[in-house]
Design a protein around this nucleic acid. Sequence first.
DNA 1: CGTAGGTTTGACTGATCTCAAGTTTGGTGG
DNA 2: CCACCAAACTTGAGATCAGTCAAACCTACG
Lengths: 243, 243
Amino acid sequence: MAPNNDDPFKLLIHKLERLAKLDEKDEAAIRTLPFRIVRYTAGQHLVHEGDRPTDCCLLLEGFACRYKLTNSGARQIVSFHMAGDILDLQHLMLARADHSVSTITDAVVAWLPAANIREMLTRHPVINEALWRDSLIDASIFREWVLNVGRRDAKARVAHMLCEFAARREAAGLGSAERFELPMTQEQIADATGMTPIHVNRMLHALAEDGVIARDKRSVQILDWEGMQRAGDFRPAYLHAAA
Amino acid sequence: MAPNNDDPFKLLIHKLERLAKLDEKDEAAIRTLPFRIVRYTAGQHLVHEGDRPTDCCLLLEGFACRYKLTNSGARQIVSFHMAGDILDLQHLMLARADHSVSTITDAVVAWLPAANIREMLTRHPVINEALWRDSLIDASIFREWVLNVGRRDAKARVAHMLCEFAARREAAGLGSAERFELPMTQEQIADATGMTPIHVNRMLHALAEDGVIARDKRSVQILDWEGMQRAGDFRPAYLHAAA
DNA sequence: CGTAGGTTTGACTGATCTCAAGTTTGGTGG
DNA sequence: CCACCAAACTTGAGATCAGTCAAACCTACG
């Protein structure tokens, strides 16, 4: 696969353009940010809870997640991320990481110094607006996850997670929502939905039996998008995708 | 109780000063924002999911919550709020409300036109920073709630919710964390923790039997703050209270 | 006082977890 | 190219935490 090294900001700018009206100067400001490209294998940590990060990481390729641990060691994934996402925008403004970030597949990341981004924000109000909006959408997704984990039953939780993944993937321009390869293991789906991997497995089988999805290894085909949305109680408004 | 009408911005400025170094001009800019004071009784709605709000609401007195509903009508409270909190800062930047806001006690609210706030942000970078930081802390709390609801057992969930309420209340200067009056019903605690009110009731009794709290009607006394934090797996770093 | 909303208690049910084996898959080294 | 290994997935059976249903019991307020 071709690394995005030649244009690391392509997907990010694509996303921010949907969030605010960037002009050429704004775009140029983003493109002149200093950065450092690092490649990671699956399962490596980019940020540890408690760190004081000085850089923000922009995911160029692959998939990542953010998670927290209980004192007893149980893990809760709080978000999944894909190419074009900034994984820890909060470190622009918050000193200490309140959660960890790790890759879930092999990945390529561009590290951007937070100080440079902050300085850019003061001179480019439209970028300020776009990034703020991006972080507010992040927060909206967290709220939906509280609802998902708090009030939906197991089958709906898994279905909702799949719907969100498909919808975001498509919105980010990474491929169709009809059929895709899941980057995460069933254990990671379990950690994201507050379940055990065993029950995730059963619910995936149940969704297939219901005829809304077909699976082959990690690849998922959504056979009935209407039915799948119903199964997952998925209404995409919270993604704020429509401007 | 004396309404905060005489200085509606007092608690907000107090909070923002801990988030960024406001100077006198910044403070003056906040104080000259136009506003409209409205009084509400318990259980009234300030924002409905799907609305396109043009104003942001600043809570001056009383308590409020934000919540979402599943299609089947189950409610999940995603946050509790107290005097000094802006309840829907996201409407500065996001057109449609992705959740509802309602009072849980009698309350006084100042409505601030979002356009005026946005205009203020462009001229006062420090306020921009403070409000952004506030919304990032909001997001951090949502992440902790995903963890709470997803990976803690019933007793810990209730204990965590109480710890957070006590800690935020104290940090906001609204009184001691040792003893306080709960503004919310057990049904609302249930909706916040993803439980049934019946089980919330049992867990409150269990915490009292464990000797970490004492209750009398809605008033709660924390007898053993260490033990209570242990019971709730509560580590306050996610509140980002220390600058 | 009567009423409605909130809280408490008990008995039963059930969704999801736990424990325990297998089976499949994908990567690695010979 | 094949054999092996670890990780991921799958399946079954039994246990349990939390939900459901039902009924009192407070208590604040009109």
